[in-house]
Design a binder for these strands. Structure first.
Lengths: 338, 338
DNA sequence: GCATAGGCGGAAAAGGTTTTCCGGACAAAA
DNA sequence: TTTTGTCCGGAAAACCTTTTCCGCCTATGC
């Protein structure tokens, strides 16, 4: 039991005092030498560096934090358990933070306000330098709390307070990319099948599609079909669409799951993809899009980029250069075969 | 610029000294009162608590860490960018850690040893109390480093050193659950379609399936078909299987993606599922399994439970009660319609 | 009434680094 | 030789909490 505790860490962590002793200088001098502060002879710096290397010294982040008030950590609060959307966002955040040598605490609030407050409190106790809030839905969310002592950046799900710093995807632009692609490949009778109308992303993408079509002097073939974000709905909607608007030659879907269902539904109704009907999804969920028949052309929302931007903006805000307001990240089309 | 820094945090964090002043006692007394230490009158404790509440005081985790040497943080190193497997594991870890009031640092090593060493170094500098290593493949991995000053638990991907503490899924048991289900629903000619033979999980599940069948006095219909973890492979293999072993009445697949491809392949060859052929997958990837036709019966490996166990074992090790060796978490069958 | 013990709370050190201030030594200028 | 500077490095405070040790006051027993 305890002997294993003893077998670990035979040698205490080297402290700055150990380095000082070995180099024959004072602790303060070691600090200056290693951090490039103060005025020291180059020879002294070199001696200290050598001693530090020999002992494998690296300063205790804890002690440094205590003094500076900065911890070089940020908290990431994902409202949803890390899912399809928070994951790439988190990866982007970590990317961005890494260059600033900061680390991220992970908190999963599971959409529960109580848990969220709890995590917020814990993060503040830990004196994180900033907080990123990542959501899975694009609908605006209630701000974390007003008057926080640290900067906050909302990623993917914007804050309902426009003064807050939010980084979001370009929903209408995504729809525009999809529509442009369909029109440019010769489609004229384009329908839209998407998720629940209660989701902002479904509404926005539908609106964006209508806008983009209008600019081409076209309009949507039939009403947009709102349903659920499932393949089952996609299959069902495809069949329904063929009954009500038989002459379609293009479908834009609010997400890849639905698009996959639509692809199956159309194919099984004897429609040839992509010859007879062009299909474009949204999200670029690779496993799904690549397995679809034919592989799915889809709009990538740039989630990882959203994460990176959020990280960058947070770092800037921590450095005293906040950029309040909503920042929009543009997606891009991933052309496969549909 | 800087004025926003000023507008934030108008009021400095309340410190223990502020509470002491308000309650009319010394800082040491506040500490004792709030932590239930020392001998104080109940009236004094109450007065301190009231003062603390009024100021919204909560102790600086940083200062506490400096003294105690413990930070109440752990590092999670995911070898792969958080994917299908690390995510549920991480959720389980967070669950377990939460009850111990610990927080987790997230590190993504992207299977790059350099990045891994870098993260390890950072975590040790931060004096984390322990480390969890989560992988996406079940193949044993090289240990993080020997002689670390903190306990390490490997989750999902075991360490190649059997002395290390690893928590893994019961691969053979999972295959057994699948086979048992198929046999109990009357299947006798059962085939196996799975991923690449270079993956331990593919090999183990195949071996487990053979074992379980042998116990029923059966054997696999045809050789196991090793391929890739893709739907395309599943569809292809299904067709191939029907040619070489036309009389199958059950298929066990090494994962849900493959199973989904197999389902499509069989159905499109005119096979009725589940009437003519029973199908069982592995992983219980809900979006996929539920959208399959018919919805897929599959083995849940208990990833979240693996995460919880890993967290529990790490906490125990931190408390001086390490449990070296490999710990196995059993999965369970999720019966849908296939 | 005095001594002793126990209950309660204060004083101070410790933890490891950074930073400010200060002083010593040496060189150059008067 | 004395003064004025400059260059280099040391001493000590500060960050915030916990914990140990100690002392005071009160109560109790003789």
């Amino acid at each position: 039991m305890t002997d294993s505790t003893a077998s670990r860490a035979m040698t205490r962590r080297a402290g700055i005092a150990d380095v000082a002793a070995l180099a024959g200088v004072s602790p303060g001098t070691v600090s200056k030498a290693l951090n490039g502060r103060g005025s020291l002879r180059e020879e002294t710096r070199a001696r200290v560096r050598a001693a530090a290397d020999e002992l494998g010294f690296s300063p205790s982040t804890v002690a440094r934090s205590l003094l500076s008030g900065r911890t070089f950590t940020v908290g990431i609060i994902t409202t949803d358990s890390y899912g399809r959307f928070s994951i790439p966002v988190m990866r982007g955040v970590e990317d961005s933070l890494g260059v600033g040598e900061m680390d991220a605490f992970l908190c999963d609030s599971r959409d529960d306000p109580i848990r969220e407050r709890h995590h917020l409190r814990k993060l503040l106790d830990r004196q994180v330098d900033g907080i990123i809030v990542a959501g899975r839905r694009t609908d605006a969310r209630r701000p974390l709390s007003d008057d926080l002592p640290v900067p906050v950046v909302y990623a993917f799900a914007r804050s309902s307070d426009p003064q807050d710093c939010s980084v979001v995807s370009d929903e209408r632009g995504a729809a525009r990319l999809a529509i442009e692609h369909l029109v440019k490949t010769g489609r004229r009778r384009i329908a839209h099948i998407t998720g629940p109308q209660s989701h902002a992303s479904a509404r926005e993408r539908a609106a964006g599609a209508a806008e983009a079509l209008a600019e081409f002097g076209l309009e949507l073939a039939g009403e947009p079909l709102f349903g659920g974000w499932t393949e089952v709905w996609g299959r069902f909607a495809a069949a329904q669409l063929l009954r009500s608007v038989p002459d379609i030659d293009g479908v834009f879907c609010g997400n890849d799951v639905v698009a996959r269902g639509v692809a199956d539904g159309l194919r099984e109704s004897g429609i040839n993809l992509p010859e007879q009907v062009g299909l474009v999804g949204t999200d670029n969920w690779a496993v799904l899009a690549e397995a679809a028949r034919p592989p799915l052309t889809t709009v990538d929302l740039g989630l990882e980029e959203i994460g990176r931007r959020a990280g960058d903006l947070l770092l800037a805000a921590i450095d005293g250069n906040p950029a309040p307001g909503t920042h929009i990240v543009h997606g891009h089309l991933v052309v496969r075969e549909s």
